[in-house]
Design a protein around this nucleic acid. Structure first.
Lengths: 204, 204
DNA sequence: TTCACATTATGAGCATGCTCATTTTTCTCT
DNA sequence: AGAGAAAAATGAGCATGCTCATAATGTGAA
């Protein structure tokens, strides 16, 4: 069983590498599952023994890229920064680690992160969402906003995050400074909504 | 040329009716373009002389439903309500007019409204987005927030709107009261972000 | 009416994501 | 080592969104 397990994980990696290379060079739309399979040296059907959908491949690539960031972030989180700064750092470093995919996986991200398709329980990006929200939970708690958190707060956070992500994916300003501005704006809003009691949000 | 023009518009309506009926009864995924064509009494190819994509059909249905609402809203807008109330009224009545499609077009709305797919210039929902944002523009202006408006503000509004929409589409709480709560929350945030100067948003 | 032209309808066919019955490989146990 | 079982690989084939060359139909002038 050792040979098989190793071979499987190797194949999985070959698929991911092949897919990444094709996504980057040909874009999401022009990359076919057949193409990925050929590039990975396997049959089309085999591909789907490893990933249930094309989107899942993209999601796995993004998850892999984000995993490192998550750990990096934890390491650098010394409790000295503001809540806003911590969230900013988490999000921005996450986006940075996805920069290779920015252009090619924008369209895919629709399906991957779709808040609408989540009617079906496990959309490809669910793991990414859950992981990210766990990190956010930890940050919020460590800044004196303990769980349980109102559902609407989490919902709002994820909405704002997706908005920033979407803008970033299509943002061609130098250094993505427009996306950065939106992130800044969104975070200020979100943090303000936490600081205020329920009901009134900053009406002076 | 009169016969042709009338026939065309009649066919268009037959397509929309057929599509609506199938979307509602079979859902977005299980409705095929072939099925729509058959139900409308035309050939598959003909369907695509009227609508470029399956999504465009759904978008046209939604746009048609929303058009009425937009006019209703204008009529009932007497300048006596708060900004927040006006926005609430616009959005909530829009959602109400889409309630028939709530369950079946949720998945489709991903592609239709996708902020990510907007790399390609005219996604199916662009018209809906533009129309809606025009109404919002008018409301904001009439409440003393004149154009030009920072891009980030519009972006933020649309993000929040999509978030509410997505939640509403999948919300099975009685009377969609959860979605209503999210809308309330989101609007308070948005209005607060307008009321405050740039930089600080409601830090008391 | 008739003929040339423009518009619209048609459905066979393509591309591609994905399935599944079958074959091949690998593992386990004697 | 060999037989039987379990796991994995395979690729023909399906479903479906969409295209496009061709056919049918409508229009307007002579």
């Amino acid at each position: 069983m050792r040979i098989t397990a190793e071979a499987k994980s190797a194949t999985r990696q070959r698929i991911l590498q092949a897919a990444m290379s094709l996504f980057v060079s040909d874009g999401w739309q022009h990359t076919t599952t057949r193409g990925i399979a050929v590039a990975a040296g396997i049959a089309t059907g085999t591909l789907f023994n490893y990933f249930p959908t094309k989107e899942a491949i993209a999601a796995a690539l993004m998850a892999e890229a984000l995993e490192l960031t998550g750990k990096e972030f934890h390491a650098g989180c010394n409790g000295e920064n503001s809540l806003e700064a911590d969230l900013f750092s988490l999000i921005w470093s996450g986006l940075r680690s996805l920069r290779e995919f920015r252009k090619c996986l924008g369209p895919a991200s629709d399906t991957i992160f779709s808040p609408l398709a989540r009617q079906s329980p496990d959309s490809p990006g669910d793991a990414i969402r859950v992981d990210h929200l766990e990190l956010v939970e930890a940050i919020l708690t460590s800044h004196g906003f303990p769980a349980p958190r109102p559902v609407v707060t989490v919902q709002l956070y994820w909405t704002l995050y997706l908005g920033v992500f979407a803008y970033w994916a299509a943002d061609d300003s130098p250094g993505q400074e427009d996306a950065l501005a939106l992130l800044d704006h969104s975070l200020k809003l979100f943090v303000a909504s936490l600081d205020q009691g329920k009901g009134t949000y900053g009406r002076q």
